[in-house]
């Protein structure tokens, strides 16, 4: 397998603010690569640099062997971009939009018409092709938005949150289109989302992005395996570090740590009654069921009060929570 994309220490600063803080990864031809991260993680900024929309502040990247800053035109011939925001001419018909976006890649005449027919079929909009885009539903607009990035048959397609604000029916259409493109045409795809279900369904490998950095990058299987036998979050009152040591020595418990207090806990309440403060403890288990039984026993033995209990499912959402202590979406 050849490498289609290679990014090395990409940095983007907006003034003093670093939106992307040295991102490196590489991607094989034919791969569907997920970028999973919460709002403001820097996914769009990263994609903008890779597609030549933004100049990187530092770092470099190659696509199909071409340097993105030094050989932008060669790079741009290989790639397609489906921007996060709708990027269409609302008063023009779907077909006119696709004709135009195809034509800027040098397509014309019969071959252009053929490709436009083809992508209209992929996004299942052939019957509405002559209607103005502004008359479409949100989901249909999204589908045209995707189609516009496909007309020139890019080798590498960047899809930036293609399913935002989309009804389930359109969402399924989009998933099918992405899979079809990848399996039947061999298109490599970078898929950005903050829905872990989408990424789990579509992607071979996933980079989890937070605050401008890739904090984990692997296949979904390996990422989920990071949770090991499972992760349990438990909120306990009157907990202290001595108890933490004892807890971490329980059978089937691999490690235990106190998570920093969440923002919403009110400091003045804590000050008045410190003994009632809740500690949030993260337990990484070798085996979650066994660890849970031991945990209940432990709580009983020390006469602790449970404030909350959560067993993390083995999915990317949990991986994200596990890695950052934050939820992917609020």
């Amino acid at each position: 397998m050849s490498t289609i994309l290679e990014a090395n220490q990409l940095v983007k600063k907006y003034g003093e603010f670093q939106a992307v803080k040295g991102v490196s990864f590489s991607m094989d031809e034919g791969e569907v690569f997920g970028l999973l991260g919460p709002n403001g993680a820097g996914k769009t900024t990263l994609i903008s640099m890779l597609t030549g929309v933004l100049q990187p502040t530092s770092g470099e990247a190659r696509i199909g062997g071409f340097d993105i800053t030094r050989e932008p035109l060669q790079v741009k011939r290989l790639i397609g971009l489906v921007p996060q925001d709708l990027a269409l001419y609302p008063t023009l018909s779907a077909r006119a939009n696709l004709n135009f976006f195809g034509s800027i890649y040098g397509l014309r005449g019969a071959s252009l018409a053929e490709r436009v027919d083809d992508v209209l079929q992929i996004v299942a909009l052939s019957d509405r092709q002559n209607d103005a885009v502004e008359k479409f539903s949100g989901g249909m607009k999204r589908r045209v938005n995707i189609a516009a990035g496909l007309v020139h048959q890019p080798r590498l397609l960047f899809l930036d949150e293609p399913t935002v604000g989309v009804d389930p029916q359109s969402r399924n259409h989009i998933f099918e289109s992405v899979q079809k493109l990848n399996r039947e045409r061999g298109t490599s795809i970078v898929y950005t989302s903050h829905y872990m279900e989408e990424v789990e369904l579509l992607c071979n490998r996933v980079a989890i992005v937070d605050q401008g950095q890739i904090i984990a990058l692997d296949t979904i299987k390996n990422l989920v395996a990071m949770l090991g036998g499972g992760v349990i979050h438990v909120g306990l009152r009157q907990f202290d570090s001595a108890l933490l040591v004892k807890l971490s020595q329980q059978p089937a418990v691999q490690s235990a740590e106190i998570l920093p207090a969440p923002m919403e806990s009110k400091p003045d309440v804590d000050a008045e009654a410190p003994e009632s403060a809740i500690s949030l403890i993260k337990i990484e288990a070798l085996h979650s069921q066994e660890a849970l039984v031991n945990l209940i026993q432990f709580i009983n033995d020390y006469d602790l009060a449970i404030a909350s209990l959560e067993i993390l499912e083995p999915n990317l959402e949990s991986v994200f929570l596990h890695l950052t202590g934050k939820k992917l979406r609020e």
């Binding site: 011939r77 709708l86 990027a87 976006f101």
Partner: peptide
Amino acid sequence: KSGALRRLVAAPIT
């Protein structure tokens, strides 16, 4: 504003 410009900037045009 519509974002179409972003698409054009990502196309092989100076």
